[in-house]
Amino acid sequence: MHDPTPAPAGADGHEDVLWHPEARAAVVIGTAFFVAALLVDAVGPGVTMARTAGWGCLAAVLVLVLFPPRISLAPGRLVVRGLFTTTDIHTDQLSALQRPADVSERVVLTDVRSFRAQLDFCLLRANPSLWLQLEADARESRRCGSLVRGTACLDGLARRMDEEAARSVFRASGID
C-alpha cells in the first residue's frame, strides 16, 4: 500500500521543471499590476490607504489565479499540490486516462480510488522524464488490468510525444 504523505521528488522522482518560472511570473505579474495601479492613482485621484488596500487585494487575487500547481511524480504516485489542496494519484493503479473532447490540451487521470488529476499536455512535453514515468506507470496499470478506459488515449499520447520529440530533434539539427 502507498504512504499517504506526498512523495518528494528526489533521485527516483520527477518534478515539473517549469513550475519555478511560472510561479515567479505569477508573482511578478501581480506585483507589476499593484505598482501600475498605484502609479495611476498617484497621477489621478491620489493614493489613499483604502485604494492601496483595494489594489493590494486585487493583486493578491491575480497572483492566486495565476499561481500554477506544483506537480511531482515518483514511481506509482503523482502528487499535484495547489495553493489550498493536494491530490495524490496512484499512477500504477489508474482506472481511466482520458482527453476531454474540448479544445483544451489536458489529460485526465483517474485512479482506482476515484481520485482525479488533470495534466496539461504542454507540461508533459516540457518534462520528458515526467512523461516517461507516467507512461511506464500507466502501462503497468494496463498490464495489471486496472486501466479499463483509456488504452487508446495512452497509445495516442505516446505517439504524439514521440512525434514532438522527433520534431524537436529535427529542429535542433536544422533539418526542420
Rank of each mutant, 00 (worst) to 15 (best):
T110A: 13
D102W: 10
S129A: 15
A59L: 00
S173D: 13
G174A: 01
A138L: 01
A23M: 01
P8D: 10
E164G: 10
W19G: 08
A165N: 09
A7Q: 11
S72L: 03
A59N: 03
D12G: 12
A11V: 09
D162I: 05
V43H: 06
S129N: 14
E164P: 04
R81K: 01
A96T: 13
T91C: 04
V28T: 09
V103G: 13
L124P: 14
L130E: 11
I89V: 15
G44R: 10
S104H: 11
P8C: 02
C122R: 15
F170W: 05
Q98T: 15
T86Q: 03
Q133K: 01
R106E: 13
E163R: 12
A59H: 02
I175F: 05
A126C: 05
G150W: 01
L157E: 10
M49Y: 10
G56A: 09
T48P: 00
V148W: 02
V103Y: 01
P100N: 10
V61C: 06
W131N: 11
L73N: 12
V40K: 02
P69F: 03
E140Q: 14
S72M: 08
R106A: 13
A165S: 13
V103E: 04
A138M: 04
F33L: 07
G56W: 00
V17F: 03
N127Y: 09
V61Q: 04
T48A: 01
Q98H: 09
R139F: 08
S146Y: 08
D12Q: 08
T86C: 01
R159D: 14
W19V: 07
A53S: 07
E135W: 05
T151F: 01
R99V: 15
Q93N: 08
L78T: 12
S114K: 12
W19C: 07
R81M: 02
A53W: 05
V27K: 00
L109P: 06
R160C: 04
G82P: 03
S72H: 13
Q93M: 07
